[in-house]
Design a protein around this nucleic acid. Sequence first.
DNA 1: TCCTTATATCGTATATTTACGATATAAGGA
DNA 2: TCCTTATATCGTAAATATACGATATAAGGA
Lengths: 102, 102
Amino acid sequence: MEPITTTLPTDQERLVAMLKALGNPIRFQIMAMLAECQTCITNDIVLRTPLAQATISQHLKVLREAGLIEGTISGPATCYCLNETNIRWLKEQIEHWLPNCC
Amino acid sequence: MEPITTTLPTDQERLVAMLKALGNPIRFQIMAMLAECQTCITNDIVLRTPLAQATISQHLKVLREAGLIEGTISGPATCYCLNETNIRWLKEQIEHWLPNCC
DNA sequence: TCCTTATATCGTATATTTACGATATAAGGA
DNA sequence: TCCTTATATCGTAAATATACGATATAAGGA
C-alpha cells in the first residue's frame, strides 16, 4: 500500500482540481447553466446572479483552469462553453473510482 | 432557466459538499486508502501520512460529515470505512450530471 | 488505580478562498 | 475620436480551510 503524501500523480491532481472547482455552489450552478444554454457570455451569468461581475469572472477562471469550461473571445465579450472532452474524462474517472468498493 | 442563487436544493447541496470534501488531495487519498484496506483506524492513516494526528482527525470529520465515510468506535479506537451507499449515490449523480451535454 | 493507546476537540497561526470596488483593456458604434 | 459594452485583473477585506500542539476523554491492561 502506498504512503499518503501531498504530491499526487498528474491524473489525480487533475481530478482533485476538478472536484475542488465543482465543490462550490456558485460554480456548480454555472456549469448547469452552461449545459442549458450551450454557450453564453460572462454577462449572461452575471445577470442571473446576485454576485459582482468581478466575482463571476474569478469563478469562471477557476472553472477554466480546472479544464471544465472553455472561453473564446468574441468581440468585446468572452463566449463560454463546457469542455465536453474533459467533463467526459471526469465522469469516466469517477465511474471507475474505487473499483474494489462500490 | 432558473436564476443562480446561493441556496441550493438539498440534493445538490449534498453533492456539492461531497465534491468539496473530495477536492483535497489528502482527503482524496484517504478515500483510496480506505477502499484498499476496507476498514482501518485513525492511527493507521496517521502513520501513512506526514501530517499530525489532529489534522487527520479533522479531515476524517470532513469526510464523515459529507457522508463519504463512517466511523464506529471500537475500544479506544475509531474504525473507519467507506459509506458505500452514499458513494454509489455520488457516482450516480455524476453519471447523470449534465445529461444534455456529455 | 495508574499507565498506555487512540482519538477528538480546543485554541491558534497561517494560507487560501471568496467577494467586492476600482481600474485597465479591447472591440464596436456614433 | 469618444462613448458604450464586456471583460479581466488588481488590491483588499472578510470568511474558511488547513495544520499544529496541547489537552480532554475513553477503553483496556498491568
